[in-house]
Design a protein around this nucleic acid. Structure first.
Lengths: 335, 335
DNA sequence: GACTGGAAAGAAAGCGTTTACCTGCGTGAG
DNA sequence: CTCACGCAGGTAAACGCTTTCTTTCCAGTC
C-alpha cells in the first residue's frame, strides 16, 4: 500500500508538505505543490480514509439501523436517505435485521468510531436501548420509533391520522362492518394504525371493531384473508395495516371466490409501488417514505455539523394522504 | 468520549492490559480481568472502531457500489448482500448513483481505507476504471459488469440465455412479429438481452427484429408502448428488456385499447415481485438477484480472508428461468 | 550591518488502538 | 541457596494521517 510517506519521499519533501499540498491547506509554493501532485499521481496515491478520520474526528459516514430490508418500504427509505447523504457528501453504512434489542445494541456498538451520526428505525417496543449503547454524544435521529424518554429528534409517519382518514373514507362509502388486519404486536406503527381504526369507529354509524392478527407480511395477510373468508358473518370491508398484507388478503379472498370490491372492499397502507398495479388497484394511504428518509438524514446532517441542536426539534409527523382506487369501489379506470 | 486510557486509569492497570482483557488475548489474571470489565462497564466504554482498524488493517466493512437504488431490483440485491455480510460479520457501506465513470471512480477512492473489499456493479460501458482508482490489492468482485481485461471474479446473470429462452417460448406459442424494447444503450445487460433476442430470431420462423429504444424505466416502457400502439403494422408480441418497462408498456397499450395478451402478448425480464400481481400477470425471466448478491459477497469475503485467489474463479453465470404467466397467454388462473 | 518579520517547509505530537518486547517476580530444579 | 524459566503486566512503537510548533531563509528597515 502506498502511503503519504512514499509520496513525500518521491517528491523530496516532508509528509507535512504533502498533506498541505493535497488538501490545499497552508502555504505551499506552486512549484513544490506541482511536484507533490505529480508524485501522488504517478504513485497512484489515495489517502487512507480511516487514518484521516482518526485524527480529524470525522468519518463522513452515517449509520442506518433498520429492522429489516425486505420489500419496497425499506428500499424507498434507503433511497431517500442515500439521495440526501450523497448531497451532503456522506456515506451510508447499512445495518439491518435486528430482531431483538440486544442484537441491535451490539450492532450499534460495533459502529462506534465508524460513523458521525446514526439514523435508527426501531419500531419495536424498545427504543431507549440505543441510549445505553451509545456514546451519548453521537448525533442520532429516530424514525418511526417510540420517543420514550430519550430526547432524539424523531420522524414519524402520521399512522394514526392516516388510518383514521382511511376509515372515514370507507364509512363514507357506505361500508359498515369493517375489519382490521393489524400489524405485528409491539410495533409502533401497528399500534398507531390500530388506534386510528378504533378512533374512527368510535361514534361512527358502524359495527364494532373486528381485529385480526397480522404481522405485516404477505403470508400473514393471506392467512387473515382465509380467516375472513371463513367467517360466518363476513365483513363488508377489510382495512389491512399495510399493503403487503392487503396483497396477501386479496389472494386469499380471490381463491375463496370472494370478489373485491363487489363482495368485500379492501384497503391497505403505505402505497407501495405495486399497489396501483393490483387488480383491482388498491386503495391505500400514501406515505412518502423516501421523503421521510431524506428529511431525517438532513436533520441528522445538520446535527452533525452543529447547525442544529438535538432538543430543538421534537417529533416531526409526516402527513399522509388517502389514495382511493378500485379496491374500495372507485371507477375502474383510475386512481 | 471515553477511551481505553480512561478504563485503564479506572481499573489501575495499563492500557495494554485493558486491551488484553477485553479481547481475551494474552494472559490476564481473572481478578484483574474482572476489574477491567467492571471499569469498562461503568464507564460505558466502547472501543473506537476506526482506531482499531487502523492498526489491525481490518475494517470489517465492504463497499457496495451501485449505479442506482431505484426499484426492487436493487432492493433485492442489497438484501442478498446484507444477509451474507451479516453472516460473515461484515458491515456494508452503500455507495450509489454513479452516472459517469469518473464519478464512480472518485466514490471508490473516497472509500479507500474504510473497506476491506469492494462489490461493484458497473453495467455501463466502463468497467476498468475501477482498476485505476483502486489500490490493486483491494479484494474486488464485480456484478453484471464487463470483465474487460481486469481480472476480478465476476458474477453475471445469464441475460443472453434468458432472453433467448424467452423468445423461444414466445415463438413456440405461435407469435411471429416480436418486438423488443431494449435497455439503456451501453448497458451490459441491455446488450446481452438484445443479443439473446436476435439470436433466437435468427433461423426461426419469425419476422425480422424490431428493436425499440428504452432505458429500463417505467416511463421509457410507456413511451415504447405508445410507439408500438401507433405502428401501422403492429407486432403480435413485445419482449421488454426488463419488467419495469413491461409495466410501462402495458399501461400504454391499455390506454390505447389494445388487449394483452389477446391483441399483443407481453413479456419482461427480472421477475420483480410485482410481476405476478399485474393483470394479466407478467410472463418474465426469473433472475434470483438476491442470491446473486449473496454469492458475490461470499466470494468477496473468501477473498478478504485469503481463502480464495482473485484469478481462481472466472465469471460465474447465474442461470435463469422463464416464468410463463397470463401476459403471454397462459391460463388466467395461474403462474 | 544588525535586526525584525513573514513565508515556506520540516519536526514532532498526537488520534485510539494493538502488539512486540521487556521487566519483575515467584517457582521449581540442581 | 542460586539460577533459569515462565507468567503477568508494563512500556513503547506502530498504523497513516493532520496540525501545531519550530526552524530556516530571505527581504526589508533603520
Amino acid at each position: 500500500m502506498v502511503t503519504i510517506r512514499d509520496v513525500a519521499r518521491k517528491a523530496r519533501v516532508s509528509i507535512a508538505t504533502v498533506s498541505r499540498a493535497l488538501n490545499n491547506s497552508g502555504k505551499v509554493r506552486p512549484e513544490i505543490r506541482e511536484r507533490v501532485l505529480r508524485a501522488a499521481r504517478t504513485l497512484r496515491y489515495t489517502p487512507h480514509g480511516g487514518a484521516r478520520s482518526l485524527i480529524s474526528g470525522r468519518t463522513h459516514t452515517v449509520g442506518l439501523l433498520l429492522p429489516d430490508l425486505y420489500g419496497e418500504y425499506f428500499s424507498e427509505l434507503i433511497r431517500g436517505v442515500d439521495v440526501a447523504a450523497r448531497h451532503r457528501g456522506l456515506h451510508v453504512l447499512v445495518s439491518s435485521s435486528h430482531g431483538s434489542a440486544s442484537e441491535a445494541a451490539s450492532a450499534v456498538r460495533s459502529l462506534n468510531g465508524r460513523i458521525d451520526g446514526l439514523l435508527a428505525m426501531v419500531p419495536g417496543e424498545d427504543a431507549c436501548f440505543i441510549q445505553e449503547a451509545l456514546p451519548q454524544t453521537l448525533p442520532t435521529v429516530l424514525l418511526n420509533s417510540r420517543t420514550s424518554g430519550a430526547q432524539y429528534p424523531t420522524f414519524l409517519v402520521d399512522d394514526f391520522g392516516g388510518a383514521r382518514a382511511m376509515m372515514r373514507h370507507l364509512i363514507e362509502r357506505g361500508y359498515r362492518r369493517i375489519a382490521h388486519i393489524r400489524g405485528a404486536a409491539g410495533n409502533l406503527q401497528a399500534e398507531e394504525r390500530l388506534r386510528g381504526y378504533r378512533a374512527a369507529l368510535k361514534g361512527a354509524d358502524a359495527s364494532p371493531a373486528i381485529v385480526i392478527e397480522g404481522d405485516f407480511t404477505e403470508e400473514g395477510g393471506y392467512r387473515a384473508g382465509q380467516l375472513i373468508a371463513g367467517r360466518s358473518e363476513r365483513p363488508d370491508a377489510v382495512f389491512a395495516a399495510n399493503d403487503m398484507m392487503a396483497v396477501g388478503c386479496l389472494l386469499a379472498l380471490r381463491e375463496a371466490g370472494i370478489r373485491v370490491p363487489q363482495d368485500v372492499a379492501l384497503a391497505g397502507f403505505d402505497d407501495i409501488p405495486l399497489a396501483r398495479f393490483l387488480s383491482p388497484p388498491l386503495t391505500t394511504v400514501r406515505a412518502d417514505i423516501a421523503t421521510l428518509g431524506l428529511r431525517a438524514l438532513e436533520t441528522l446532517a445538520a446535527l452533525i455539523e452543529g447547525e442544529a441542536r438535538a432538543d430543538a426539534a421534537p417529533a416531526e409527523r409526516l402527513s399522509v394522504e388517502v389514495v382511493v382506487r378500485g379496491s374500495s369501489g372507485a371507477a375502474a379506470t383510475g386512481e
